[in-house]
Simulated assay, not measured.
Amino acid sequence: MDFLLTPNPGLVIWTTISFVGLFLALKKYAWGPILQALKVREDTIEYSLQAAEKAKADVEEMVATRQKMMDEAKKERDELLKDTRALKDSILAEAKESAQEETQKLLNVARKQIETDKLTAINQLKNQVADMSIQIASILIDKEIDTDEKQKELINKHLDKANFN
């Protein structure tokens, strides 16, 4: 077993030449393609990471855009509801005002009609009272004043002095 511990110069030289040859062959034919494959793989991974980052940024941008669009839609909906409520309130107020005006007009017309009817009724009542007074006076004194016109004038003069209200 001594031969394992003592180096043989021929063996060392041939081992060194074999090692250098194998090293040069591996460097030329194995490490170059392996390093090239590793470089391609590294570039692919880098590109995939960049694509993933870009996709993530795109998704975040789409989420922000979607949220912005939803906010705008909510704002438009709120504005539309506000405008609709304002229009409804305006229409109701206008209808109420119109109804009040119409009611007031009808009340004014009714009051005028009542006043006119009242005056007509008073005048008719005065005329009837005057006619009845003439008939009663004619019957009582059995004497007539010259004309009916003078009688009515006299009675109306006395009735105007009297207050029937």
Rank of each mutant, 00 (worst) to 15 (best):
K39S: 15
K56Y: 12
D160G: 00
V59W: 09
A162P: 05
Q135Y: 09
L140N: 14
N165S: 12
M70P: 00
K88C: 08
E94R: 09
T65E: 12
N127A: 08
E97L: 07
R41S: 06
L159W: 00
T6V: 13
D78I: 01
T16R: 12
L107Y: 02
G10Y: 08
N165P: 00
K126C: 06
M69L: 15
Q135N: 15
S133T: 03
I17A: 08
L119K: 13
M1G: 12
K27N: 05
K161V: 04
K161L: 04
E79A: 07
A57G: 05
E53P: 00
I122T: 12
K75W: 06
I155G: 03
A137G: 02
D58K: 10
Q36E: 11
I122Y: 13
E149T: 06
E61R: 14
Q151E: 02
W14H: 12
V40Q: 11
L92C: 00
E42L: 12
L92Q: 10
E97I: 06
L35C: 10
E42M: 05
K150I: 05
I141P: 00
M1I: 02
G21A: 14
K157Y: 03
I34T: 06
A110Y: 01
R85K: 15
R85P: 02
V20Y: 07
S48Y: 09
I13Y: 15
D89R: 12
A30L: 13
L107A: 03
D117N: 10
Q104R: 15
L26R: 04
G21T: 13
K82R: 11
A86H: 10
A37R: 07
D89E: 14
N8W: 04
E61Y: 07
P7A: 07
K82T: 07
A110W: 02
A86G: 06
R111I: 06
A99L: 05
M132D: 14
K152D: 01
K105L: 09
D78C: 01
L49D: 14
E153G: 03
A51D: 12
L107Q: 08
I34H: 01
K157L: 09
L24Y: 10
A73R: 14
Y47S: 13
V109Q: 06
A57V: 07
S138L: 14
K126I: 03
V40G: 03
A137S: 04
E42F: 13
E149N: 06
K143N: 15
K88W: 07
E42V: 05
R41V: 01
F19P: 06
K152V: 01
D2H: 13
K150V: 02
T147A: 00
E149C: 02
V12W: 03
L106V: 02
N156Y: 07
A93R: 07
S90N: 11
N163T: 12
A93N: 07
K75Y: 09
W14K: 15
A73Y: 11
M1K: 05
